[in-house]
Design a protein around this nucleic acid. Structure first.
Length: 829
DNA sequence: GACTGGTCAGAACTC
DNA sequence: CTGACCAGTC
């Protein structure tokens, strides 16, 4: 929309541009409503943009940055913009670039974690770390915690690794350490004492390994700024404009970091309260000379307390709700006009969220009109529900809606199984977003551990991990022997490998250790050549290939007869491609840079392009996205709101916000569905409609099948046996009856209650592809078939090839369906 | 004695 | 779908 080539106005002092002749940023204000315009134009020390869902906040934020640059109020290097995901950062960078062109370079647009890593790498030497530090993800820290819990026998006091890890993380987000925690905790409780020991040991282990865990990245940066005001001043002088997106999801450590960064520089280590009165406008791009009275950076935060859904990992909603108190004199701009959804969807969203007390009143509105009513559906089982979703998507698709414009949300990942199963059978293209955790796969973690062992040899966890991968005959005993030797000699675990003969282990094992040491040394020479030389950009890819081949890792997988290992080989190939891609994008990238990049990708980032497919994801993942048609599934008590949150203070309110986030993702069509029974963890439970459903005015929902319809059929548990209208034939199977596994007969419960035993439902979630294979079934238009679920029907057409052949069937009772012939429970008549 | 590999049980909320 | 356990082998 904006001409990217618009030249910068050079030479004019931007100070008068605000008053005089046409503003250089006039085009940036085009098409904005008055509130948005104010959010772009306002200049002052602190600005809070309360941006309701779909109110155009990204647009406002990017234009605000573009405006600062265009009017020359700031150089790109003086801008720090913080987003929640790398993906959001990339998008913002791109959009700012589109507005003002190449000048966008030099800005810091990144996540909290990336920004902190950058700062920590620059300053590491100043406070006892090496620049080559590595980053522990939650899996790594869990492994470390686990070992320490075992060592301290902490389980005797009821401390599980998960609980310890969670508590440490929470404390770090509060900027507490073991010592400060010990001062406040009840140390007469032995469990607390042991916890403090584990915490302290954990931190020592990280320091020894020259590593930070995720929470440390933020917390240590705050410590750094507080302990070294001179260092902090460098960044305070540099960043004159700090902008933070999704401010409602910041935790205390992030809040503290923002405070440190926006404090006026040069006041020494006197921790003065934020001076909101220093509201001079910064017209001079050049940094002022040190010593002059300087204001803190201008701070802009954007957020919506109604979309705060990360309290469980430390987000503190008070950061946004008390912004005006924290930053006296702050300007607040409220964006309420919604450009995404129809009024019906917004009315439902408003109605739901208004049940949260102690929130600031805010009503989303739109001028696009009421739109279609919200569609409701109650299935007898989660499969029934999934079938509804699949049918409805097919109907929308036939109506001209692309699959890529449809999304299906659920509360927990486990709910995706039933949907997937039905989607596969319905030949509906879908993609699970955020579920594939490539970098969490064992083989990828192994490969990364090899790289870490080279890049940061002090990282003992990594070296221990690869010690016996592939199998080298090095077990617990040998590992302990190495650790003991390292401790005795005062050398690192990694260096102990070079002295295998001194360990007092057998000759075979000695040889294995020496071989590993040699491979690591060779890779080190390749990737980290002695100072003076610069490693070629391909060194990471080459080094990885060398490590995997010469260590025997690849050979072991190739020799394996486990079919899983074939997939593992493919994944490793994929990782090698990733390193090559990395080399292309970062010609000067080192192995440390690569490791950092990988460590900081979050699940929300690898939402690859899902064009042509329906997107399946959790409601958390859905934040920030939007789709023409949205299906919110499993709208049941104990799911949304989730059972576990029910007893936590603020839990139900947070669940309501999560539901609110889910429904506000929809542009045109919103579907809410639930199931009367749900098989989870091998047990079938009766589900109740979510309380949130009742909060939506009845006239907004068009129930295709309401909870009342389902219950009225025989009432109570007899609903289990009720038939879905249109599905005829068969006698006593229900809901998941269509599952083709052999034991389906045993799944008939008659008029009885829910089965107590779990064995019956052992397989309900399995993808049926393995169970049924109709691969050789030949179908032609005109053939009559019978389907376990839908009864008899006539084949209209057959499309696709081989395993992907799809039958388009018109069922006598159930209507039009598409079926993947290979797996559909059908017989030719 | 140390290590491997098979088998069985238990498991999960959200990043 | 991972961890713990046990029997077998080097």
């Amino acid at each position: 929309m904006t001409d990217a080539s618009t030249p910068l106005i050079v030479g004019s002092s931007s100070g008068d541009s605000a008053a005089g002749s046409p503003r250089p940023d006039a085009d940036l204000l085009e098409g904005l409503n008055p509130q948005q315009r104010e959010a772009v134009e306002y200049r002052g020390p602190a600005l809070l943009i309360v941006a309701g869902a779909g109110s155009g906040k990204t647009s406002v934020l990017t234009r605000r940055i573009a405006s600062l640059l265009r009017t020359r109020e700031a150089w790109p290097s003086q801008i720090l913009a913080i987003t929640f995901t790398n993906k959001a950062a990339a998008e913002m960078r791109e959009r700012v670039g589109a507005l003002i062109g190449d000048t966008a370079r030099g800005m810091w647009i990144s996540t909290f974690h990336s920004a902190c890593v950058r700062i920590l790498r620059r300053e590491a030497e100043n406070f006892g770390f090496k620049t080559s530090f590595t980053i522990y993800d939650s899996g790594d820290s869990r492994a470390l915690v686990k070992r320490l819990v075992k060592e301290h026998e902490a389980d005797r006091y009821g401390l599980t690794p998960a609980a310890v890890q969670g508590k440490i993380s929470k404390l770090k987000n509060e900027l507490a350490d073991a010592e400060s925690y010990a001062r406040t905790a009840n140390m007469s409780d032995p469990a607390e004492r042991v916890f403090v020991e584990v915490f302290a040991d954990y931190q020592r282990a990280l320091t020894r390994a020259n590593a930070f865990d995720f929470d440390d990245l933020i917390a240590q940066t705050v410590y750094l700024f507080r302990a070294f005001p001179k260092v902090a001043d460098v960044y305070r002088r540099r960043f004159r404009h700090v902008l933070v997106d999704e401010y409602q999801d910041t935790n205390h450590a992030q809040y503290a970091l923002i405070h440190e960064l926006t404090r006026p520089p040069g006041e020494g280590d006197e921790p003065a309260p934020y001076d909101g009165g220093g509201g001079m406008m910064i017209f001079e791009p050049a940094p002022q000379p040190a010593g002059a009275a300087e204001a803190g950076a201008s701070l802009t935060v954007v957020g919506d307390s109604d979309q705060s859904i990360y309290a469980f990992r430390g987000a503190d909603i008070r950061n946004i709700s008390e912004f005006e108190r924290d930053f006296p004199g702050a300007k607040v701009v409220l964006l309420e006009q919604n450009y995404r959804s129809t009024q019906n969807i917004l009315s439902a969203a408003n109605a739901v969220i208004s049940n949260n007390f102690d929130r600031k009143e805010k009503k989303l509105w739109t001028d696009v009109g009421a739109g279609d009513p919200i569609v409701g559906f109650t299935g007898y089982s989660q499969h029934d529900e999934a079938q509804f979703v699949a049918d409805e998507i097919e109907a929308l698709h036939r109506g001209g809606l692309a699959y890529g414009d449809v999304a299906v949300f659920y509360r927990t990942n486990s709910q995706s199984r039933a949907l997937e199963e039905i989607f596969i059978r319905s030949a509906l293209p879908y993609k699970i977003m955020g579920g594939t955790k490539f970098y969490e796969r064992a083989e990828i973690k192994d490969a990364m551990a090899y790289l870490i062992a080279v890049a940061n040899p002090t990282d003992e966890m990594a070296v221990r991990r690869i010690l016996n991968k592939p199998r080298r005959g090095i077990g617990d005993v040998t590992e302990t022997a190495i650790a003991r030797y390292a401790a005795e000699q005062g050398i690192s675990f990694r260096d102990a490998l070079a002295n295998a003969s001194a360990l007092g282990v057998g000759p075979k094992i000695q040889a294995a250790i020496t071989q590993l040491d040699a491979v690591l040394a060779e890779a080190t020479a390749l990737m980290l050549p002695p100072s003076g030389e610069i490693a070629p950009s391909t060194s990471v890819a080459d080094g990885l290939a060398l490590l995997l081949n010469k260590s025997g890792y690849m050979d072991a997988l190739r020799a394996s007869r486990d079919p899983q290992d074939e997939a593992r080989l493919e994944n490793l190939d994929e990782l090698v491609s990733v390193t090559k891609e990395f080399a292309r994008n970062n010609p000067d990238g080192t192995v440390i840079d690569f490791l950092t990049e990988v460590a900081l990708v979050s699940d929300a980032d690898d939402l690859e392009d899902a064009s042509g497919s329906v997107s399946l994801m959790t409601m958390h993942t859905a934040k920030g996205l939007e789709y023409d048609a949205v299906f919110v599934t499993g709208v049941e008590e104990d799911l949304i709101p989730h059972r576990i949150s029910a007893n936590e203070p603020g839990g139900p309110a947070e669940e309501r916000r999560l539901f609110y986030v889910g429904i506000t993702r929809a542009r045109k069509k919103l579907h809410l569905s639930l199931a009367m029974t749900r098989a989870q963890f091998g047990e079938v439970t009766v589900a109740m409609p979510s309380r949130f459903l009742q909060e939506i005015p009845a006239e907004l929902i068009d129930w295709r099948q309401s909870p009342g319809d389902v219950n009225s059929r025989g009432g109570g548990s007899r609903a289990l046996n009720a038939r879905r209208p249109g599905a005829r034939g068969g006698s006593s199977n229900w809901g998941a009856r269509s599952l083709p596994e052999g034991g389906s007969a045993s799944r008939r419960f008659g008029d009885d209650l829910v089965p107590k035993s779990s064995s019956i439902d052992r397989f309900p979630n399995r993808i049926p592809a393995k169970v049924r294979d109709n691969g050789d079934l030949e179908l032609a238009p005109g053939d009559r078939i019978r389907h376990d679920d839908f009864g008899e029907g006539r084949v209209d057409a057959v499309t696709g090839e081989g395993a992907k052949r799809i039958a388009h069937v018109r069922f006598d009772a159930a209507g039009q369906k598409k079926l993947l012939i290979k797996v559909a429970p059908i017989v030719k008549l």
